[in-house]
Design a protein around this nucleic acid. Structure first.
Lengths: 245, 245
DNA sequence: CTAACACTGCTTACGGCGTTCACGAACTGT
DNA sequence: ACAGTTCGTGAACGCCGTAAGCAGTGTTAG
C-alpha cells in the first residue's frame, strides 16, 4: 500500500505536493518539539487532514520519519553542495569548507542531525539517497570524494604500506576497492589508491564525524563550552598533513 | 511518589530486591527486543505483577529506563575496574586495557551502550553516578584519570602552550581547572597540568570514544567489516606518543 | 496484644495513539 | 455520461501509560 506510482498528471502533482507537506509538517514538529511529538494525529492536524488519511501516503509512523529524513538529507546535501560552490575550486579549501559547513549545519539542526545519523529508534531503515543509500554513507562519500581529489592533486604524505600493521592492511583492502569503485563511478581517475591514503581518509573522517557527533550529543559538554577551537585544531592538522610541515 | 526512603528492615530489603528485579527485567527486554519493547506492561508481566503496581517503584516508564541505566552503568564500571585490576600497575598498560575493555564491552552490549550514551529518546535525564553524574562523564573521567596518571608518571611530550591557537588555549583553560579539581578530589597530585596535556587528553578521548560510538552505531560499516585494527592503530599512536618515537 | 498505620499489589477506568475498515466524494480517462 | 481509481472521513479495535480506589499484609506505638 501507499507509494503508488502514478502517471504524471495533475493528480500526481497534487499527491507529490501533499507528500511534501507531510514531510514538512513532520520536520516542523520534529524540530519544534522533538521526535516524540511526531505523531500521526499531530502531523495530520498540522496539514489539516484526519489521521487515517495519512495512510494513503505512508505505511506507518516511521514512514513519516522516512519522509522527513529524506527531505532533511536533501537539505543537507544542498547546503554542502552550495557551500562548496561558493568557494574556489581548490580541493583543500573545499575539504575544509565541507567540514566546517557540516559542523555548522549539525549545530543549527541538532534534531535533524539526530534523525539522520543518531537515532536508534528507527535504525538503518531510514534511507536517504535514491538507491537506498543511508544518509551517513552519502555524507561519508562526500568527504571521501573531495579528500581523494585532494590527494590526487597534491599527493600529500600518507603512511607507507609497511607502516600499517598487517590486520589493518587487510581490513583496509576491501575499503580501498570500494573507494576505487566509487571513484570510477564518479569519473575520478586516481590510478591505484595506496592503502595509506585510505587509512588517512578514514582517520580524518572518523575524527571529523566523531567530534561533531560528540559535540551534538553533548558528550563534550563536561570538558568544553565550545568545541569550535578543537574542531579548528583538527582542520589545521589536516591542512598540515596536506601542505607538509 | 515512589522512591520512599525507608528505614532498613526486612521490608526495605524486599523493596530493594523488587527494584533490582525491575531493573533486571527492563534490561532483559531492552537487550532482547530493543528499547521500544520496554513497556510498563511488558516489564510488569516479566516480574509477574500488574502494570499499575510498577508505579509503587518508579514514577513512569522513564523511571524503568533510569533503573536499568543505573544497573548498566554499575556493570560497565565494574567491568572496567575489574579489567584494570587484572593488569600490572602500569599507567600505560592500564590505559590501553581501559580502552580495549570499553570497546569490547560496547560491542558486547550494543543496546546497553545505546541506552547509556546514545539514545536521544531520554536525553540527559538518565543519570548514573550517585551525585547525578551522567554515565558518559563518569566514563570520561575514568579515562582522564588514568591518562593523567600516565602523564604524571612519564611526562610524555605534549604540545607547548604556544603551539596551541589562542581560542583553543582559552577554551581549554576551564577544562584544565576542572581536571585539576577532579584530580585533587581523587587525591592525585599532579602540580600544574599544562594545557597541552589537556589537549592531548581530549584528543585521544574524542578519538577513542568517537571511534567506538561510530562503530556501534554502524557508521563505519560502509568502510570496514571490523574496526578492530583501526582501533588498535589508534592505541598504537597513543603508545608512541607516550613512549616516544 | 492490638489498634493504627504504612506499604504493596490488584482491579477498574480514562484518554491518547497507531492502525484497519467500510463508506462516500471527487477526480480521471473514455 | 460512465466506470474506475484515488482521496478523505468517521467509527472502531487494541495497546499503552497512567490515575484512583480498594483490599490485604507487614510494621510499630501504646
Amino acid at each position: 500500500m501507499a507509494e503508488i506510482t502514478a502517471a504524471p498528471g495533475r493528480r500526481a502533482r497534487l499527491r507529490a505536493r501533499t507528500l511534501d507537506d507531510l514531510g514538512l509538517a513532520t520536520r516542523h514538529l520534529l524540530v519544534e518539539e522533538g521526535v516524540h511529538a511526531v505523531t500521526i494525529s499531530a502531523v495530520a492536524a498540522t496539514v489539516g487532514m484526519s489521521a487515517p488519511a495519512l495512510y494513503r501516503y505512508v505505511d506507518n509512523r516511521d514512514g513519516l520519519l522516512k519522509l522527513a529524513s529524506a527531505a532533511v538529507a536533501r537539505d543537507l546535501a544542498a547546503t554542502l553542495l552550495d557551500a562548496r560552490r561558493r568557494v574556489p575550486d581548490d580541493p583543500l579549501v573545499q575539504t575544509l569548507t565541507l567540514c566546517r559547513t557540516f559542523r555548522s549545519w549539525a549545530l543549527d539542526h541538532r534534531r535533524e542531525f539526530g534523525l539522520l545519523f543518531a537515532d536508534a529508534s528507527v535504525p538503518s531503515e531510514l534511507r536517504a539517497g535514491g538507491q537506498g543509500e543511508p544518509a551517513a554513507e552519502a555524507l561519508a562519500w562526500a568527504f571521501e570524494e573531495i579528500v581523494l581529489r585532494l590527494w590526487a592533486a597534491s599527493r600529500f604524505r600518507v603512511p607507507a604500506d609497511e607502516d600499517l600493521a598487517t590486520p589493518l592492511r587487510e581490513s583496509l583492502e576491501p575499503y580501498r576497492e570500494r573507494l576505487t569503485a566509487s571513484a570510477r563511478a564518479a569519473r575520478l581517475d586516481l590510478g591505484e589508491i595506496p592503502l595509506g591514503a585510505t587509512y588517512t581518509l578514514l582517520h580524518y573522517w572518523t575524527r571529523v564525524y566523531g567530534l561533531i557527533s560528540m559535540e551534538i550529543s553533548g558528550h563534550l559538554d563536561h570538558a568544553l563550552a565550545d568545541a569550535g577551537p578543537l574542531f579548528e585544531a583538527l582542520l589545521t592538522e589536516l591542512e598540515v598533513q596536506v601542505t607538509g610541515p
